[in-house]
C-alpha cells in the first residue's frame, strides 16, 4: 500500500511543468481570442501570455506546496501506524 503511494509521488516531478505550460497555453489562447475580436494588434495577446506565465508559476508552486503538505501528513500517519503496530 505504501509502495503505491510512493509511486504517486513521481507525479510531482511532471505536475509543476505541466501546470506552467498549460497555464501559458490557456492564457495565450484566451488572449488571442480577445485580441482577434477587439484591437487585432497582438498587445492583449502578449499581455495575457505574461499573465499566463505568472499564473502558471503561482498555481504550480501552490499545487506543489499543497501536495508536499499532504504527503508530510500521510508520512506522519504511516509512521504513527508503524510505531503503534510495533508497540502493540
Amino acid at each position: 500500500m505504501k509502495g503505491l503511494k510512493d509511486f504517486a509521488k513521481l507525479n510531482l516531478i511532471t505536475a509543476f511543468g505541466a501546470t506552467v505550460i498549460a497555464n501559458i497555453a490557456v492564457a495565450g489562447f484566451i488572449g488571442w481570442l480577445i485580441d482577434k475580436y477587439t484591437f487585432d494588434n497582438n498587445v492583449i495577446f502578449v499581455i495575457s501570455l505574461f499573465l499566463g506565465t505568472i499564473s502558471g508559476i503561482y498555481n504550480g508552486i501552490r499545487e506543489l506546496l499543497k501536495e508536499a503538505e499532504r504527503y508530510e501528513k500521510l508520512d506522519k500517519k504511516d509512521d504513527n501506524d508503524d510505531s503503534d503496530s510495533h508497540s502493540g
Binding site: 490557456v26 499573465l51 503561482y58 498555481n59
Partner: peptide, 8 residues
C-alpha cells in the same frame, strides 16, 4: 490568475 489556473 485563478481563472486561468482553473481552466488550465
Amino acid at each position: 490568475m485563478n481563472l486561468i489556473g482553473e481552466l488550465a
